[in-house]
Structures are given as structure tokens and as C-alpha cells.
Design a protein around this nucleic acid. Structure first.
Lengths: 107, 107
DNA sequence: CGGTTTCATCGACAGGTGTCAATCTACCAG
DNA sequence: CTGGTAGATTGACACCTGTCGATGAAACCG
């Protein structure tokens, strides 16, 4: 798991050149949001403190493995984090990660 | 070419639920930034008013068709726009499109 | 203990994506 | 008109990705 690198402004007028590594790291995080299901999951998590996986499986009309797959990608990108409590797993947003992307889009 | 739909906050704590269409539209625009070369191109365009395609082909060590391909994806996502002057083509950032993404990431 | 539930992982498959060489289409200079 | 240059398009290829069914792993219940 990467330590969630902090990348400065890059994509609005006036931004300074960024290194190839940073472009790669940014692309990786944007890739996590490059799917409508994952955008919807993030949106769902943004509306509550935490959400049980079982609720996500009910909300979206996708198989449980597919939801699990998307959650993993979001987790690996550092955008969400999971906590296991007994039989259930609860997912939360990582606001700092979203902030990081917003900052990167600034000028 | 889509009319660049405006989508409200979606991905930070406190955001309201968004429609499936909006999740799709957002994912499409994030997908345009889900590649390191395209992030670097956007960063390059952010540092100048406009950039000639010939300069991009020189800067990045990729073939001219590949650069052209990435520019098309960015254009179709509405993140950049092109202007043809004589033999050369000049690309510019569309700041409103970047702003739209930044707003979507807000809470 | 055995059975059930929740979630993650695996294997497979169709469709999408990044890349390049080759080609095509303006446009400009003689 | 001829030749040269800039950029877009095409075709091909390897690789990645979203999806599902089947299986595994861990916790709970009776």
C-alpha cells in the first residue's frame, strides 16, 4: 500500500510541471474513479459515516464479487478504507485522499 | 460532443446522492485523466496558453499517432480544445471542465 | 460439532485500451 | 502541379478491466 503521495496543483492554468512519477500516481488515483459503479460507491460512502458491504450489494444490481472487486480497487487507491467487525465489513471514505485529488486539479 | 454537463458535489462527506447518469458522466471525465500520459499532457497545457501538437510529440517519447490518440480522448471528454491554424494544430485547456471535476470532488 | 452468513479470492471470458507502423488528408512552398 | 510537412485515421496486437459463477475463509448460531 502506497503512502498516499501528496501532489501539488497540476491541471489548471498556471500549474508548474510535474514529474513523471507524480503523473503516474495521479493517473492511478483518477483511474479508481474512472468507472460509474465506483463513482456511485464513493458517492454512497460520502453520504454516511460508514456503509456495510451487504448494503452496497443490495443497492447496486451487481454480483457480490463484482462489488468486492470495486471496493478493492478503491481501497488500493487509498480512497476508502475498510474495517472488519465480526461477520460484517464496513467501508469508509478517506476524505484526505479526495482532498488530494481536488488540490491536484487546482491551478 | 456532449454539452459538458454540470454535476454537483458527489464525493466528499456530506454529498447528496447523484443519479446514475451523472455517475457515468463523471466516470467518463475521470477516465480521461486515468492515464499518466494524459495527465502529463494536461499539465503541459496548464503551463501555457496553447501548445502545438508538434511540441507535444517532441516532449513525450511516444509516436505521433499515440499523442494524437490521447489528444482525441481529452478532446472528447471536453477537457481540452483544438484550433487548427494552417498546417499546425494548437491545443488549449478548458478550465471550466477542470473546475467541474474539482467541484464534483467537493462535499 | 455442523450449518449459515458475510465477504474475499479465483478462473474464465468478452470487451476496452495503449501502442505502433502504415496510410490518408489537408496545407504550404516552389 | 510536385514535393514536403503536420496531424488525423486505420489496422493490428498485447494487455488490462468489468463481470459473473464457483470456491474459500472466517465468524456466528444452534
Amino acid at each position: 500500500m502506497k503512502p498516499l503521495p501528496v501532489i501539488g496543483a497540476c491541471c489548471a492554468p498556471g500549474a508548474q510541471p510535474i514529474a513523471a512519477d507524480d503523473a503516474q500516481a495521479l493517473a492511478d488515483r483518477f483511474k479508481a474513479l474512472a468507472d460509474p459503479t465506483r463513482v456511485a460507491i464513493v458517492n454512497r460512502l460520502a453520504g454516511a459515516d460508514e456503509v456495510c458491504v451487504c448494503d452496497l450489494v443490495e443497492d447496486f444490481e451487481l454480483s457480490q464479487p463484482t462489488i468486492s472487486h470495486h471496493l478493492r480497487l478503491l481501497r488500493e487507491a487509498g480512497l476508502v478504507e475498510a474495517e472488519r467487525r465480526g461477520t460484517w465489513a464496513y467501508y469508509r471514505l478517506v476524505p484526505e485522499a479526495i482532498d488530494g485529488l481536488r488540490v491536484a486539479l487546482a491551478g
